[in-house]
Structures are given as C-alpha cells and as structure tokens.
C-alpha cells in the first residue's frame, strides 16, 4: 500500500485534519438540521391531529400544512 498518499511528504497531518474537520462539521450540521426538521414535522402533525375534526380539516386545506402532512406520511 502506498503510504505516501497519507503522509504527503509530512503535510498529511495538516491536509487530512483539514478535510476531516470540514467533513465532520458538515456531517454534524446536516444530521442536526435533519433531526430538528423531522422532529418539528412530527410535532406539527401530532398537534394538528389533536385538533377537533373541523379545525383539522381547515388546517389540512392550508398549502404548507398539507405539504408537511404529505411529507410526514411518506416518511
């Protein structure tokens, strides 16, 4: 195995650390944002379903609410 790819004439530690740091920060931000989005969508659906029938039907008619309900039912 060619170790030069990792060592990079002694610069490997700096190069790999930079890429690893960027990758993990981006991954963390992505997972955290995704988790928050899913949680909010779930909470929204729960709150909407707890409304009385007529009000729930009103909420379902709103475009954004409809979109959230569809995306939740898909997942």
């Amino acid at each position: 195995m060619n170790l030069e790819i990792f060592i990079m004439n002694g610069y490997g530690i700096y190069v790999w650390s930079s890429f690893a740091f960027t990758f993990f920060i981006c991954l963390f931000l992505y997972l955290k944002t995704k988790k928050t989005l899913k949680k909010l969508e779930k909470d929204f659906v729960k709150e909407a379903q707890n409304l009385p029938e007529k009000q729930f039907e009103d909420v379902k008619r709103q475009k954004i609410a409809k979109e959230i309900l569809i995306s939740q039912s898909r997942s």
Partner: peptide, 26 residues
Amino acid sequence: MYVAVIFLMKYRIETIRIKKKSIKKI
C-alpha cells in the same frame, strides 16, 4: 450545493415553527 441543502432544510424548519405557532392560536 451542501449549503443549499442545509439552507432549504433550515428554511423549512423556520416555516414549520411559524405554522406551529398559528396552530396553537386556533
């Protein structure tokens, strides 16, 4: 493109937060 993905997800988060508040007012 990654920024666009996170931005769109965050945009949806902020929109749902506002919608949730309006549901509570019903």
